[in-house]
Amino acid sequence: MSRMPKSSRLRQLRGLPEGLGTTLHYLWRRRVTVDYPERQRPVAERFRGLHILDRYDDGLERCVGCELCQAACPAHCITVEAAENPPDHPFSPGERYGYRYEIDLLRCIFCGFCEEACPTGAIQLTPRHDLVGFSRQDFQVDREWLLVPDPRTETLAEEGAR
């Protein structure tokens, strides 16, 4: 290690009070960070985060499996297949429901085109943005994951657990 000139050492020493000064300067200012995840910063009103599949107030699914979201998706991350509603316990109003609905969240660019294409307001992008998982598989989400709780069967406690 080469020996530094004297003037440089002095300059190094000068850094210490400068740094402490910055710390002291911000110590008394308003904090910009929040205690994530206990506290979360509010996002913009039209922020596009994780998707949900919405239901009507009576609990029936809004999705009819029309695949328009799949057609609109520029990232090709949505897969929809439809099926005929069982007449005795229909999933959605009408003849048809989306029995398979999968999104590859790693491919999704959160552009919100699916939301725009949806004729029934089923697929919606929420402000939620905690996109975390332990494997790639965790990001392949299906209909069960996306669907909001059914008010007819699930309690609020269960919703919290989700």
């Binding site: 009819v64 328009l68 439809a82 003849e95 004729p119 029934t120």
Partner: peptide, 9 residues
């Protein structure tokens, strides 16, 4: 006008 659920759509 039920094009989203219509096979012809």
């Amino acid at each position: 006008l039920d094009c989203p659920v219509c096979d012809k759509g």
